[in-house]
Design a protein around this nucleic acid. Structure first.
Lengths: 171, 171
DNA sequence: GTCAATGCAAACATTTTGCAACTCT
DNA sequence: AGAGTTGCAAAATGTTTGCATTGAC
C-alpha cells in the first residue's frame, strides 16, 4: 500500500514538473525525469551527492552538474525544499504531497524529528504584521536533545558525580 | 554615549572570553584579543572574510585560519552566534549583551529586520514537550517582503496589468 | 532546424588542516 | 620548559560555470 501511494505521488510530481517546464519553454528530458523519480524515491531528507550516488547505483547515468541544475528547478517549482541543518551542504526534502512541517534536531545524535508547522505559520504572520512585513515562508528548527540523549547524558552525569569533569579538554 | 556602552560591553566580552579560555586551559593570546574586539566593534552581522578585511584595514595582522579558529571558540563560549541566511557562507552576529532575537529576511532586497524572540522561545518549548524533546535553542527566520518591496512590486504590477508577464523567461 | 540541455573538467568560494616556527603561562 | 597557537600554503568541500556536443520539440 505505501508502494501504491508512492507510485501515484511520483506520477503526480512528474506531471507537476513537466507542466512547470512547459510553461517556461523548458524541456522535459530523460535526465530530468530520472531525477524527479530519484528524488521521490529517496528518503525524506537527502543531499545532492547522496542523490547522485543513489542514481548511479541504480545505473542511471547523469552528470553532477545536471543534478544540481535540476534540483534548483525542482525547488523553484515547489516539489523540493532546501533545508539548512548544518552549514556544510544544502539538504533537500521533497515536500510534494506532504503537510508543512519543521524539524527538531538533536544536538547529540543528529536525529531529526518533524513536527507540524501550523503553529509556526500562525506565529510568523502575527510577528510579521508588527513589522510591516509580508511573511511568505520561514525556516525554523528547534535544536536540543531527543529523549534518548537526555537519558544518556543524565546517566553519564550520575556516573561521574562529584568528580571534576571535562576540564582542560581540547577541541 | 553609545561609545561608552560599547566600550563597557567590549571589556565585558573580553573578560567572558578570557575566563572561558582559562577554564579549558587555553591561552588568551594577542590575536584572540584583537579578534574579540574586532567582532564587538563590527556591525551586528558579519562574515569571516569581512572581519578579516576589517582587521587588516585596522592594521591588525592575523591569519585567516586564526580568525576561523577563534570564531569557533567565540561561538562555543556564547559571545557570537552563527546565522545561516543564504547558503553561501556562514554569517555571524555578536549576541553578547543583546536580547535574543530572530530575523525577517526580505526576499527581494535582502533587508534584515530583527524581532524579539520571546514568543518563539515560548512556542518552541511547547512544541518540544509534545515530542519528548528538550529544546535548547532554535533557528528561525521569516522570509518574505519588506514594506518597501511590497510597494515596489504592486507598482510594477499595475504598470504591466493586462499584459502577459514573465512567461518563457530563462533562469 | 533550432534552442535548450548535457557532461565534463576546470573554476570557485569558503572553510579546514598539516606543520614548522613561535608565544603565552 | 612545554603545551598551546600562529600563519602559511595546500587540501578539502560543495557548488557553479564555460563550452563543445547532443537531444527535445
Amino acid at each position: 500500500m505505501p508502494q501504491r501511494v508512492a507510485q501515484e505521488l511520483m506520477k503526480a510530481a512528474e506531471n507537476v514538473f513537466r507542466e512547470f517546464l512547459r510553461d517556461r519553454g523548458l524541456k522535459y528530458t530523460g535526465e530530468r525525469e530520472m531525477i524527479v523519480q530519484a528524488v521521490m524515491r529517496n528518503p525524506e531528507h537527502f543531499e545532492a551527492e547522496q542523490l547522485l550516488r543513489d542514481m548511479r547505483q541504480a545505473r542511471e547515468k547523469v552528470g553532477k552538474a545536471t543534478v544540481y541544475r535540476t534540483l534548483k528547478l525542482l525547488v523553484e517549482c515547489g516539489i523540493v525544499k532546501e533545508v539548512h541543518f548544518s552549514n556544510k551542504q544544502v539538504h533537500y526534502e521533497h515536500t510534494y504531497g506532504q503537510d508543512p512541517h519543521d524539524h527538531m534536531v538533536c544536538r547529540r545524535c543528529g536525529r531529526i524529528i518533524e513536527f507540524d508547522a501550523s503553529d509556526v505559520v500562525r506565529l510568523r504572520t502575527v510577528l510579521a504584521a508588527k513589522k510591516d512585513f509580508k511573511a511568505l515562508s520561514h525556516r525554523f528548527q528547534i535544536v536540543g536533545l531527543c529523549r534518548a540523549c537526555v537519558q544518556a547524558i543524565s546517566i553519564a552525569q550520575s556516573a561521574t558525580d562529584g568528580r571534576a569533569v571535562n576540564k582542560g579538554r581540547r577541541r
